[in-house]
Structures are given as structure tokens and as C-alpha cells.
Amino acid sequence: MLNPSVIDLLVGVADGLRAEVLEVLEPGPARDQVTAAIAIVRRVARALPGLVPYLLADIDDLQATLALLGVPPDAAAPRPDPGTDGLDVLIAFDLTLRDRIAALAEPDGALELGAPERRILIDLLGRMTERDAGLRLSPWER
């Protein structure tokens, strides 16, 4: 089923909550909860189309950076195929790569951080935060 799409369904839920539920609620905790839920559903709907491109870009960047730092790829965990693997597989793979970067960066990490390595890491982390911001899932991102 392509129509209504997942995005259409989410937007429909948000519209329905606003029109049918929010309007009849008095000010108070219940109304606050529904207001928050509407905002979150709208943010998720907005972020959804960008999620797979975001993950693929992140995975490419993390793998390239690990290679640049001389860390060999994990043969036991091949790169997922976006043609066949689901979103959950992409997310899990991305998290394993982030774990490996975090292990390099942590205070007692294995990597001896000279200036070039630190520069490579800082540049990667800057790109990651920019990508995160681009999804605009948080109400704090403008």
C-alpha cells in the first residue's frame, strides 16, 4: 500500500488529534499531553523521508573515517544492503560504527590521539551533528 503513505497516515493522526480531541479538552495535563503528541507526530512525519538517506550518508562517513584512522572493517558485520535490509538493520549497523568511533575517542580509548587523528575525529563529529540537525527531530533544532 503506497497510498495513504506512512507520512500521510501520521499527518492524518496529527490533524485528527488537533481537530477532534484538542478542541474539546480543557487546559490542563491532558491537553498538554495531546499538544505534545501532535508536535512529535508532525516532527516524525517530517523527518521520515530523510531517514534512509541520513543513515546511508552516516554509514559511508563513519566507515570512511575508520579507514582513514587505520581501523580495519569488521568482516563479521558487512554493510547492510538498503535494497533488502530494513530500517532497523541500517540503524543497528550505524550504531555499531558509532560505538567503534566512540571507543576510539573515549578518554581511555585505544587510539593514540595525535593532532591529525584528533582533527579527523573532530571533522567527522562536526558532520554528524550537522546531519542530526538536518533531520530536525528535536524542537530545539532551528
Binding site: L95, R98, D99, I101, A102, A103, L104, A105, E106, P107, G109, L113, R118, L121, I122, L124, L125, M128, T129
Partner: peptide, 11 residues
């Protein structure tokens, strides 16, 4: 989840 940014900052 892992936050490499914060690991590097801690270091």
C-alpha cells in the same frame, strides 16, 4: 547510544 562527540570532549 554512543556519543563519540562527548567521548572526545571528555578526553
Amino acid at each position: 547510544e554512543p556519543y563519540p562527540e562527548l567521548e572526545l570532549a571528555l578526553r
